[in-house]
Write a protein that binds this DNA or RNA. Structure first.
Length: 727
DNA sequence: TTCATGCGGATTTTT
DNA sequence: TCCGCATGAA
């Protein structure tokens, strides 16, 4: 068993555990991914389990792919690849099961998946339709209530009502589910809900899946909700071979229905389960673990865990208090530039983490200003763009013309004379006939023969039937065209370029997104449309992580499961972390604390805790207070102080000694030699060719001034700019 | 029906 | 700060 040699005793115990339920409680950096992959490899190589009998649930699609690759490299390529190991997120696995088992359910196999936007859009429409006061009952909050119910497997009929608000939610929920069905659509929660119900109500289906998957493995178990828990339980109902890995201290999705008590539920439901603790940390220096423990030990209701490592004490954690949010951002960028210039880290080993997405903006600006590349994690960034959503909605509508949300989105984009009045009457007509607006539209192609024709005003019926005709043509074309061909067809038919590219910079960037989306469709050539749509719908934030060697910007939530050499956690102000919306809810405050803990434990070698004394606008920002979590960290663990000299905890304050990164660096600066001279011809990835005007050595880096043919004179740090010498 | 304009309001985290 | 909505004119 060669690959088992490198495991510690607990890891090996987990990997080689026999059949039956196993719960692995794994601290951060304790090698849990390794345990999962080796467990799979072990089952295949030594227990005679066939790959297709294994179901492994990961937190992102990216993690699933990586796991597949790692298993393959442990066993040799063909042993794992292409033999039907079922690997993916809960949502993607459910989507596949539902596609196959649709005839047991009130949906058809060509269902579409509604994203958050579609869901809220639908709810909003229903609120309007039911004449409910939109100000009092916000679509977003009603949606949250509905979603919570679904995550607990509560259907509209069983929705508990203790007050008037609940009554409203119940009515909306009921209609919402009906609308989803006429649209032949499911939302994110339905993927889990329908699958759980499918297995619950059809013993023969349950047994078939349970027998096919003789081994079920679940990662990030602390973040499962009730629906997911039940799903897992059903899937191993015949054999009980369930292997869960998780860490209650890293549970940060409670607001999404995740219930860390699933760990307790597991122990109750599977009394024979083995529990294995992975405690040794292989990721971080001890100074970082000490900081992490200081923060998490204040949490209530938890078993104290000792985090230890043999990676050495490491340097102290740096605390920096910036004047305002602008200097917070430039501190981060400057420090990263110095870390990179000093050869302490690759750009790609650095990450900046924040509580809310909005915080990324100033950081991005600071990176842009410094002309340093960065990578931003977040599906929203690309898939949330209007132009991208529009085109995906077109494709979705063609794939499934009953999709009401997509139709509503694109029916008048670009404007084709179908305004709100016309749309209203189209929807009304469809509802009266107990069908979908899309099929009314398609029926209008028959002209006056359609029973719907007479129901519209002469003014409205023209544009409607025209659009119906186009839609019908696309629908037919889609049977033979590739996704890319269909994409091109849509874009040119609606002249989308003219619609979005208004010759402004903004317009140009929108068109770039369209081209990027087109490139994406090419990856799906030869694969059915539904795969494209499904993957696009279920994309996770982390799936957007590229392997570019540049610092990563991401939310603390998105950081879960990742690790970086140097981590900056910014915005450590009360109200941001912990977020002000959690202040009066103890449970949520605990979750904020765990979120901070997750961020801290992402760091391998260096950790920077950063905050701004003012926030909100240049010079006019409001004063902030340090995060209350900072006071839990003993002073002796921290290095650095604020610009004003005040230590956040009122400790000994040194007067205006700004933190100097070089003073904290134990490595002496490497001596470097100039590589560029005036006259050297170079090439830059974005600006093309240019000639070096002059060069000087500065702070362990070579700074060159270059005249580019395209953009004129620029100053660049050669350690970052990725220049190629041509002559 | 569309487009421009101005106002008010809200504003976490994500599959 | 940005977004969505209502309002009013063409």
């Amino acid at each position: 068993m060669t690959f088992l040699d490198q495991l510690n005793q607990q890891q090996r115990q987990a990997v080689t555990a026999g059949n039956g339920p196993v719960l692995v409680l794994a601290g951060p950096g304790s090698g849990k991914t390794r345990v999962l992959t080796q467990r799979i490899a072990y089952l295949i190589a030594y227990q005679g389990v066939r790959p297709y009998q294994i179901l492994a649930v990961t937190f992102t699609n990216k993690a699933a792919r990586e796991m597949e690759d790692r298993v393959a490299s442990l066993l040799g390529e063909d042993a794992a690849h292409g033999h039907g190991m079922m690997l993916g997120t809960f949502h993607s696995i459910c989507a596949r099961i539902l596609r196959r088992e649709a005839d047991h359910l009130p949906i058809k196999p060509n269902y579409v998946i509604f994203d958050q936007d579609d869901q809220v859009r639908l709810i909003k429409g229903i609120i309007k339709e039911l004449n409910i006061n939109e100000k009092l009952y916000r679509p977003n909050s009603i949606h949250a209530a509905v979603s919570n119910a679904k995550n607990e497997l509560i259907d509209p009929d069983n929705f508990p009502t203790t007050n008037y608000r609940d009554e409203i939610v119940k009515r909306v929920y009921d209609l919402y589910q009906k609308r989803l069905l006429t649209s032949n659509a499911v939302d994110f929660d339905d993927l889990l809900l329908w699958t759980a119900r499918l297995l619950e109500e059809n013993p023969e289906v349950r047994e078939a899946y349970s027998q096919r998957f003789s081994h079920v493995l679940v990662d990030e178990f602390q973040d499962t909700n009730i629906a997911q828990y039940m799903l897992v339980k059903h899937l191993c109902s015949t054999h009980g071979n369930i292997f869960c890995v998780g860490d209650p201290d890293q549970s940060v999705y409670g607001w999404r229905g995740a219930d860390w008590r699933n760990v307790q539920r597991f122990e109750n439901d599977f009394p024979a389960s083995k529990t294995i603790l992975l405690e040794q940390n292989y990721r971080s220096k001890q100074s970082i673990l000490d900081t992490a423990m200081a923060v998490i030990d204040r949490a209530h209701n938890r078993r104290r865990k000792k985090l230890f490592t043999d990676r050495g004490q490491g340097e102290k954690v740096i605390y920096f208090e910036a004047r305002d949010d602008y200097s917070e951002a430039s501190f981060v960028v400057d420090t990263i530039a110095q870390l990179v210039a000093g050869n302490r880290f690759d750009p790609g080993e650095c990450a900046v983490m924040y509580r809310t997405n909005a915080q990324s903006r100033l950081l991005e600006e600071a990176f842009l200003q410094a002309r340093l590349p960065y990578r931003l994690v977040g599906a929203q960034r690309f898939y949330g763009r209007r132009e991208v959503k529009d085109l995906i909605a077109y494709i979705r509508l063609i794939y499934n013309p009953n999709d009401e949300a997509s139709l509503g989105r694109v029916i008048n984009i670009p404007a084709r004379g179908i305004g709100s009045k016309t749309i209203l009457s189209l929807y009304q007509t469809a509802r009266n006939a107990d069908t979908s607006p899309g099929s009314v539209l398609l029926d209008l192609v028959r002209g006056a023969e359609s029973p719907f024709w007479g129901q519209f005003t002469a003014r409205a019926v023209g544009p409607l039937s025209t659009f119906g005709t186009v839609l019908a043509r696309w629908h037919t074309a889609a049977q033979t065209l590739t996704t890319t061909e269909l994409f091109d067809c849509i874009v040119s038919d609606i002249d989308y370029k003219a619609y979005i590219d208004d010759n402004t910079e903004e317009g140009a960037s929108r068109w770039e997104n369209v081209e990027e989306l087109r490139r994406l469709t090419q990856e799906y050539s030869g694969r059915p449309l539904e795969e494209f749509l499904e993957n696009v719908a279920l994309i996770a934030d982390q799936d957007t992580l590229t392997d570019a060697n540049a610092p990563t910007l991401l939310t603390l939530h998105a950081a879960k499961g990742l690790e970086f050499g140097a981590v900056f956690i910014v915005g450590l102000d009360d109200g941001i972390l912990p977020h002000s919306r959690s202040f009066d809810k103890p449970e949520e405050m605990e979750e904020e604390r765990r979120l901070f803990y997750v961020g801290i434990t992402r760091a391998k070698d260096r950790l920077y805790l950063v905050r701004a004394m003012q926030r909100g606008g240049r010079g006019w920002g409001e004063d902030t207070y340090p995060s209350r979590f900072l006071t839990d960290i003993p002073e002796m663990l921290l290095d650095g102080q604020s610009r004003g000299g005040a230590h956040p905890f009122g400790g000994d304050s040194l007067t205006d000694t700004r933190w100097k990164p070089s003073s904290a660096s134990p490595k002496s600066a490497p001596v470097i030699e100039a590589r560029y001279r005036a006259g050297t011809r170079i090439s830059h990835p974005t600006w093309g060719d240019g000639i070096v005007l002059n060069s000087k050595l500065q702070e362990e880096d070579e700074i060159v001034e270059v005249a580019f043919e395209s953009v004129g004179i620029k100053r660049l740090a050669t350690s970052l700019a990725n220049l190629t010498i041509l002559s």
